[in-house]
Amino acid sequence: MEAVEGTENVESGGGMKDLEGKYLTFTLASEEYGVGILQVREIIGVMEITAVPQTASYIKGVINLRGQIIPILELRIKFGMEPQGYDDRTCIIVVEVQQETGSVQVGMLVDSVSEVLNILEEQIEPPPVFGSTTLDTDNILGMAKIKGKVKILLNIDKVIGKEGVLSQFEEMAGQKASG
């Protein structure tokens, strides 16, 4: 996973206390994730997505959200999982992230949306340390243990990152020319 620099999230600075609050939880494959409810704008069903060239593979394209064009990220690809087809449970969670130029709305494709949970301080643990190269835990705020299940709380600003556009166009050009 590439290292993405995002605007520093308030929550990442302090202890677990700051992480307490309401989260929208969703699933990707067999894993459960949570995203702070304050950053969620809305949840919509999958609609036709217009592909945009020269963007990272996890950017599926753009949609028309009531006259505004917003980009759609496929979280499965972003997190290096196998993509799968869409079904009627597939959703787009529209989140708002702060960037230097102002706030940006981005849609995230997820397998299904579960529920809104109030997660308490004592339920949250810091992200585990995996082998240094296998997994970058920068995207993760913490792990919440609820009724024996673990929810991965995401730092959305980090996940979304600054830009989804591939800067190295040459790289792509090389691929295309050889392929």
Partner: peptide, 27 residues
Amino acid sequence: IKSLGGYMKDIKGLAGGTILADGRVGL
């Protein structure tokens, strides 16, 4: 013309997007 948003600005070859008559986005 609509901007593709700060997240996708300056994509070479694209001036922006627009919403076509069927509601989909055209580049």
